[in-house]
Design a binder for these strands. Sequence first.
DNA 1: GTCTTATATATGTATAGTCTTATACAGTCA
DNA 2: TGACTGTATAAGACTATACATATATAAGAC
Lengths: 174, 174
Amino acid sequence: MSLKYAILGVLKLKPHTGYDLKKTIEASVAHFWSADQSQIYRTLALLVTDGLAEVEVIAQDGRPDRRVHRITTTGLTALREWLASPLPPETPHDAFLVRVFFVGELGIPAAAGLLQSRRDEADSALSRLTALVGQERGEPVDLAHALRRATLRNGIRHAEAELAWLDETVAALP
Amino acid sequence: MSLKYAILGVLKLKPHTGYDLKKTIEASVAHFWSADQSQIYRTLALLVTDGLAEVEVIAQDGRPDRRVHRITTTGLTALREWLASPLPPETPHDAFLVRVFFVGELGIPAAAGLLQSRRDEADSALSRLTALVGQERGEPVDLAHALRRATLRNGIRHAEAELAWLDETVAALP
DNA sequence: GTCTTATATATGTATAGTCTTATACAGTCA
DNA sequence: TGACTGTATAAGACTATACATATATAAGAC
């Protein structure tokens, strides 16, 4: 359950409402972690019942109260423990490769089509990430920012690897 | 729910019991799809109630009956439809990158340690995949086999990309 | 004037997957 | 002889996530 820690990590940077969190997540970690709105609210509630976050209710008129969540010292400890704990074993789930593995059944044109649509996706992912990297010029050079930029570079490296693999694979179709 | 189609795809190659499936999956698609034993049996039962597979019970002595599952024509149609359907949007979930994003909190040694343990994993993934590719020499050159080998190449490309990214990232730590 | 977007939270339901435990016998290794 | 591994199936409990829907108002677009 990394969403729990992703949220704790964001709350550590700054207190957030569920609504804010959704936007912050979309603007920062969305390239490697997607989060559903309802899941965010439920996880936030869980953090509060576990004492890892606390809420300040700010009344508004015409809108529901803002429920601003702040990380607690217990929460900070939990975040640090998670960050220092060993990586759990991976359980890969790549639906695209399942298709590649079995799509031979449909013949070459269908296989080529599948690879082409993947190419389109990888292409647009690559330009999205490249644009984001461009926006980060001028940010601080401290460790935290360097690591955040590194996650973007990771996406770029893998998008490039995917494109190279697609070229090689299309070229080698019998 | 790609497991459903992964199983249908395997059943299309040859009828399987749940037990066999677990082993076939481990030996063929495990590098991009992991499947829990209980999940395999449940999915198999679902395929049968949906008419996508049928069972032949083979009595044994000293062991539970073998329940051999075979794909039906309805199942084959469902598999083909899935293979031809558009790729659903991706919802990325990479717990490792969540850590990288927030691990700055713990300082440079912890960040370097995280990256190093990832390096070990990527290294062993790479040698595992390379060994598998070696074993596939001499297989047929038809479309289906080419695509199956391509999934291994995909894993290799991404493992290499991950290693290159790790080097670059470790070198750039402030 | 109506339609869409933004603000803000919350629940119900379905789907997918993991972990754990249960049952039962045969063969192998020490 | 006792422990471990392999063959074979199954269900319960739990975790994580996604999808849909509900509520209520304001602001801006067309």
